[in-house]
Amino acid sequence: MSAWRPGRRTVLLGGLALLAVLPWLGGPYTTLILTAALALGLFALSYDLVLGVTGLVSVSHATLFGVGAYGMAIGMTRLEAPFWPSVLLGIGAAAALAWVIGFFSVRTAGPGFIIMTVIFAHAVESIANVWTGLTGGENGIILAVSRVALLPGLDVRFTAGSRSAYYVVLACLALAYALCHWLVGSRLGLILKAIKGNEPRALALGHRVGVYKVVVNVIAGALAGVGGMLYGLSQGFVSVDLLRVLLSIEVVVWTILGGPGTLIGPVLAAILMSLGVDYLRSVTHQYLFAVGAVTLLVVLVAPDGVGGLIDRLLGRPAPAARS
């Protein structure tokens, strides 16, 4: 072990600098893929508030990611609304659905919560598959935006593979990270951690645990919705793939591998693993085998994430697999 250990801030700034130069190392296609990976990183970050910080197992997070993207896409195309109202519609849709899912799911005891989120996730996926007039089904909705006025005087080109889109997503990810970091340290964050640590005690201390669970689901859902919109904008279209149960499971895997509750871990895992899946998808049609195998292997080999796995390989005692 060397004596010098870089501080958290140094590592973060270094990582940000690395991410900032990445799009200059490849062509537009690389930038396009990286942009998507960053948007998925933001998605995983929001999920860490739910699973990592609060210890709440939700299998409907991609539902919120996709509904946020669809809210914006439907606003921009079907309703022909301007950009910002469409964005608000997307965030509103994701937050509202998160509230509905949370409201009903917390009414059930223990694992009922998980199963309720599974039910909602499947239900929304079924609706989106069938209601093609609204969602465009497999083909999705094409977002014919090449230029978006984020602020007066600040136009961003959202054509496929543009660097400006990449930087917008990177900036949103950094902002969201700062927001989540602040949130975890706030009073609300402390209560959420108390719920994860010992729910009966948090209840006994007088915290309204059910309300906080809904609140964190709504905050994380709105953030996931933002991730979904950025993903949709950077890809130029929004499809049913964004709200599949499969993606909800993938974000659980990313969060576990990256280290639940560390915020940065799930982001890194999401970026790296989504790039890996992208690569697999480009070389074989059978990439879902690999996704299934990784999902299974995480449980068998690394239930405590990459960090826990390294600890175990080095012979350090690892905490038993929990939550």
Binding site: I114, L246, V253, V291, T295, L296, L297
Partner: peptide
């Protein structure tokens, strides 16, 4: 849940 989802997908 994760293990069985992986198996189901396979």
């Amino acid at each position: 849940l994760l293990a069985t989802y992986g198996i189901g997908l396979i």
